[in-house]
Design a protein around this nucleic acid. Structure first.
Lengths: 225, 225
DNA sequence: ACTAACCTTACAACAACTGTAAGTGTTAAT
DNA sequence: ATTAACACTTACAGTTGTTGTAAGGTTAGT
C-alpha cells in the first residue's frame, strides 16, 4: 500500500485531504508539528508528498529542496499561491506537480494517481549530463545506445559521476572496490581503469577519464579537451 | 538534441509554439497534415509530444491513447478545453500533463523541461501489477527487492507479462528464445521454465506460472491460487 | 494402468569477469 | 638528458554465471 504524506499546517484542510485520500484507499500520514519536517517526512517513507508552501518555521520551498537533495519524491505542491513565479520556482526546485487551492478532489486524485503510477513504473537513472547510468543494473545509456558494464566498471564510473567535477582519490576507489586500500596491489586499479576506458571508448565516450598523478581520477566533459 | 513534436491544427498557434520552443533550444517538428497523425508522430522520433485535443479527423484523445499503447511519450496536452472532465479523461488515457490555453510561455517551458528531464533520467519499467520488470536490464523489481534475471529468464517473463492474462504458446517462446520452433528440443524450454520458476520463488513470487499442457504457459496472479 | 507431456537435476562447454604478472609508456624532478 | 615514480596495456589463468544436453522423476489425461 502506498503511503502519502501530507504537509499542511491548516488542520481543517489537512483532515479534509486525509479523508479524500483515504477514501481512495491510500495510507495517509500527516505532518502536524513543524519542528523537524524534513526528518519527519523521510521517517514516514512516503510514496508521495503532498506539500503546502506556506508553513511555519521552514517554507515549502526549502522542504522541497531538501527532499529532492535526498532523492525523496515525488512531490506534489498544493498551495494557495497562484502566481506563476511561485509555480516556476517550485518546479525548478524539483516539485513534480503544482496545484493551486481550491482544488477539486477529482483533479487532486487524478494527479496523485498519475505521479504514483509514474514513479512506480520507472527506475531512476544517475544523470551524468550526456549519459545516464542505471545504478542497479550497471547499464550506461548514451544517446540511443546502451552498454552493460561489469560490476567493477559500474562502481568506478558511478563514483566518478557522483564526485564530478571533483577528483576521486585512488584510496576511495580501493575502498569502494575492495573494502580497503591495505594489502591491495595498485596494479588492479590500473587494469580496471584501462578496462573502463576501453568500454567507454566503445560507445563514443573517449578520453573522459583524466588521471591525476598520485591522487586519483576525474570525470571530464567533452569540452575539457 | 531533444525533438518536440507539435500536434496543433491552428497555424498561427502552431508557429508561435514553434518559436517559443526553438528559442529555448529545442528541435521542433510540426504535424501539419492530419491524415495519419499517429504514424507521422512516431516517424518523427519525438522526445516529447505537445498535443492539442481539438483536431481534424482524429481527436487528441484518440491520438493520446494510440501513442501510449505504443509506448510513445511523454505527452503534454495543451488545449482550450478547460473542463475538469476533459483533463481527467486525458490523464486517464496516459497524458503526462494537461495545460489549458491561453498558457504563459514560461509555464509551458517549465512543464516541458520537467517532463523531458524526468523521462531522460528515468527508465520505464514493464508493469506486471505486483512486480515490475526493467526490460533492457532484465531486472525484476518486487516491493523493495530486486533480482537480476538471465537473458532467457527475461525473455520468458516479459512475454508472459505482456500476454497476461492470455496464455503464451510454446511455439512463441521457442521463436522468441531460439528464433524458430524447428530443430529445437522441447527439453530446453522446460529447463528454462524450471529455472525461471526457481528465480521467481526466490523473491516470493511462487507458483505464478501456470502450465497449460500441450499449449504453453500463463502468468497468474496471487489470487488465482 | 498407461503414456505423453512436463519438471527437475546434474554435467559439460562457453563467455564474461577478475586478479596477477610483466612489459611498455609517460611524467616530473633533478 | 637521466631516471625514478607512476600509470597504462596486454596476456594468462582461475572463477562464476549461463546455457544446452541428457536422464530420471512427476503429473495429467485417457
Amino acid at each position: 500500500m502506498e503511503r502519502i504524506v501530507i504537509v499542511e499546517d491548516d488542520v481543517f484542510l489537512r483532515e479534509e485531504l486525509q479523508n479524500i485520500l483515504e477514501k481512495e484507499g491510500y495510507s495517509v500520514e500527516c505532518i502536524s508539528s513543524f519542528d523537524t519536517p524534513v526528518k519527519d517526512i523521510i521517517s514516514a517513507s512516503p510514496s508521495l508528498i503532498l506539500l503546502d508552501l506556506n508553513l511555519p518555521n521552514l517554507s515549502g520551498f526549502d522542504i522541497c529542496r531538501a527532499l529532492k537533495t535526498k532523492g525523496i519524491g515525488p512531490i506534489l505542491v498544493l498551495t494557495s499561491r497562484n502566481q506563476l513565479s511561485d509555480e516556476l520556482h517550485a518546479l525548478d526546485l524539483g516539485a513534480d506537480d503544482y496545484l493551486t487551492k481550491p482544488c477539486h478532489p477529482k483533479r487532486l486524485i487524478a494527479r496523485v494517481q498519475k505521479l504514483l503510477h509514474l514513479y512506480k513504473n520507472m527506475h531512476v537513472l544517475l544523470d551524468a549530463g550526456d549519459f545516464q547510468i542505471d545504478e542497479l543494473a550497471n547499464i550506461l545509456y548514451v544517446g540511443k545506445d546502451s552498454i552493460s558494464l561489469s560490476e567493477n566498471e559500474g562502481i568506478i564510473i558511478k563514483a566518478l559521476v557522483k564526485a564530478s567535477p571533483s577528483v576521486v582519490k585512488k584510496e576511495e576507489l580501493f575502498h569502494l572496490l575492495w573494502g580497503s586500500s591495505d594489502y591491495v596491489d595498485e596494479n588492479i586499479l590500473q587494469v580496471n581503469m584501462t578496462r573502463l576506458r576501453k568500454t567507454l571508448d566503445g560507445v563514443g565516450l573517449s578520453n573522459r577519464i583524466k588521471t591525476i598523478r598520485g591522487v586519483g581520477y576525474q570525470l571530464i566533459g567533452d569540452d575539457s579537451l
